[in-house]
Design a protein around this nucleic acid. Structure first.
Lengths: 161, 161
DNA sequence: TACAATAGTTATCTTTCATATCTATATGCC
DNA sequence: GGCATATAGATATGAAAGATAACTATTGTA
């Protein structure tokens, strides 16, 4: 079978090492890869509680800000209002939060966590912190604080350039 | 309209400030929010070139690693093989890369960037770097280096805990 | 009262990412 | 050689996150 043709002209094909040096010069690339790791781990962590990243986030915000409206929650979560509806639907159907009518403005709902929701959230939050420690455990407190501060500055710079 | 009923019992409803203090204790939360800012900005930046985040990434990796296979590319991009097929399809259809048969292994394709692809990539890369500077410009070189190093450690810790 | 703005909803779409399954080919072993 | 197994690519399908347009009900305002 054309013995001597070494794979050179048409196909070098390195064995294993694919260089991403160019992309490493972009913060977005490193950020995405780190975030993917965190997201996958978070999804596994929340799965026993039948929570997803967004439902966990929404539940936490409702717990910390009782009575807030869906619009406020959507803004806090940086998602569009339509996308929040299904999240709130799911949490309400499961009895984890309630949609309470506001007498002063019958358009809005005041969201409140139920005792069942609070119990589930407490357990889920413990699990999430444990898994975050597993991933972030190698960071010192200073590194972690510096990371959060830097991330907040990046986030703040995003109000349209 | 029941004048005196202050919004207290059923619905506190804060005006604007929704507290996310609890979630700020999770790195994943700050990371997601920062990443969303970067991703939205990157999408706007790549839109004139008709590239998305993933097609830009793939094109860069093919340019830097000529002849690599789709499996290698999928592994480098940390996506599953099926998801890469459509990305490579799109790049090939647009004439930005080629799928070349490998005589030594007729299962695999060797991916190469075309001159047209290289030209588009050069222009897109310039635009991406400009926009990254706009977002990241407020960071010092030390902060940026520390951020990338920390992100890489987070990413590396993700090989299943 | 008419009109604009807001809260929530519905429908529809895109992008990213995953799993299961199929084919063609390659490889290791008897 | 023949067969089991592994691999490369592809197809089909679906979940999750996110966006936009358009609708209803209500509120506020000129």
């Amino acid at each position: 079978m054309a013995e001597d043709s070494a794979p050179h002209g048409t196909a070098p094909i390195q064995p294993e090492s694919v260089s991403d040096a160019t992309l490493r010069g972009l913060i977005g690339y490193s950020m995405k890869r780190a975030f993917m790791v965190i997201r996958a781990d978070l999804a596994r962590t929340l799965e026993p509680f039948e929570l997803r990243m967004m439902t966990f986030t929404a539940l936490t915000l409702v717990a910390d800000n009782p009575g807030l409206s869906q619009s406020q929650l959507a803004q806090a979560m940086a998602v569009e209002r339509p996308n929040l509806v299904v999240i709130v639907d799911e949490l309400e159907t499961r009895g984890l939060i309630t949609r309470d009518r506001v007498p002063t403005d019958r358009r809005t709902y005041a969201l409140h966590i139920t005792s069942e929701g609070a119990q589930l959230l407490a357990r889920a939050t413990r699990a999430v912190h444990q898994h975050e420690n597993g991933i972030m455990g190698k960071l010192t407190a200073e590194e972690e604080a510096a990371l959060i501060a830097t991330l907040k500055r990046i986030e703040a710079s995003g109000g349209r350039s």
